[in-house]
Design a protein around this nucleic acid. Structure first.
Length: 318
DNA sequence: ACGCCCTTGGTCTAGTTGCC
DNA sequence: GGCAACTAGACCAAGGGCGT
């Protein structure tokens, strides 16, 4: 019997559920023989240290299984009824904006660079779902790299006809924004103190034609990004807005994919959605700070609190 | 004319690319 | 996978438009 890729993903989930149940049973059993069965008996001294030694393994297994089950974005889309063709279009967005293609001797290497594991997991899951290939992810000095050799995959994706219904367009924008989108602040020292100006943008030193293409698609979801040319390079630039209505609209369509973090800069490590939510919160009350440090501390602490809440909420939901 | 604040664009360097 | 060269992804401060 040949399983299709959706069935394989579901089987991985079932295996992980078994690991969790098995781990919980073994923890309960170990606790039972350590603390109840042998409680008060002489051999507790021999039995207890050996068995307790195995306890962390069970907890680690549970954590790994929860992590495996919760690679949720691709599965959420499957549940929403996204087809293989839809996933191919999303892959086009990821490959076209976030990946590099290295070609030599008629071999095509597709590489995704990012220090955010969530994006790698989504990319790998999508490739596996659509083409049945598991890309290899490895760590280099500063970042993770996911790569696969696949001329056929590349040709197939490059030739895909890019037409979207509104549901797919929104996920397309969320996907490319999660890879190449950025959110940050300008800190300006005014007479009233330090003021912060949020910026929501896409890409950097991207060729003009490609920028126009993505500007239009993003615009069709109600988010107006302005095209800025970086004069250091020939017809290259980025998209950016500081209009809070565009931030609101982006939040309305779902914002960045959950779990995507800022790659570098002063906000490195903060979840992009946390900063987006905080920006919308701060926009309601114009805030001045006595120093840049004060502004930075407030932003970072608020985002870390929010990340923690989201994390605890996810654990509660299992 | 003044000053606030949005916009522009130069600069920096960590992350990415191309080659091995 | 490792490494050197290069550039993508911000960062930051000056310019200039606009309201008073």
């Amino acid at each position: 019997m040949k399983l299709n890729n959706v069935e394989k993903l579901n089987n991985i989930k079932i295996i992980n559920i078994f690991i969790i149940i098995g781990s919980i049973i073994s923890i309960l059993y170990i606790n039972y023989i350590c603390y109840w069965k042998y409680f008060g008996l002489d051999n507790i001294i021999i039995v207890k240290p050996i068995l307790i030694h195995y306890l962390p393994i069970n907890y680690i297994l549970i954590l790994i299984s929860f992590y495996n089950i919760s690679s949720s974005y691709v599965k959420k889309l499957l549940r929403k009824g996204f087809s293989i063709i839809d996933f191919k279009k999303l892959l086009f967005g990821i490959i076209d904006t976030s990946c590099s293609i290295y070609c030599k001797d008629n071999k095509y290497c597709i590489r995704l660079y990012s220090n955010d594991m969530t994006l790698h997991k989504i990319f790998s899951d999508m490739i596996y779902l659509v083409y049945g290939k598991k890309p290899m992810t490895f760590i280099t000095k500063n970042t993770y790299v996911t790569q696969l050799y696949g001329k056929n995959i590349l040709m197939d994706i490059k030739n895909i006809k890019l037409d979207f219904d509104s549901k797919l367009k929104i996920e397309f924008v969320r996907t490319i924004m999660s890879g190449e989108g950025w959110i940050t602040y300008s800190f300006v020292n005014s007479s009233l103190g330090f003021k912060i100006y949020p910026k929501l943008g896409f890409g950097s030193t991207i060729p003009y034609e490609k920028l126009s293409f993505y500007k239009n698609i993003i615009c069709e979801t109600g988010i107006n990004l302005n095209l800025k040319i970086d004069k250091r390079y020939e017809k290259r630039g980025y998209l950016v807005t500081n209009n809070i209505n565009d931030f609101k609209k982006f939040k309305e369509i779902g914002g960045f994919i959950e779990g995507i973090h800022i790659k570098k800069g002063i906000f490195k490590g903060i979840e992009k959605n946390s900063l987006l939510n905080l920006t919308l919160k701060l926009a309601k009350n114009s805030m001045n700070f006595s120093s840049k440090e004060e502004a930075l501390n407030l932003i970072k602490n608020s985002c870390i609190d929010n990340d923690l809440k989201v994390y605890l909420y996810r654990i509660m939901l299992g």
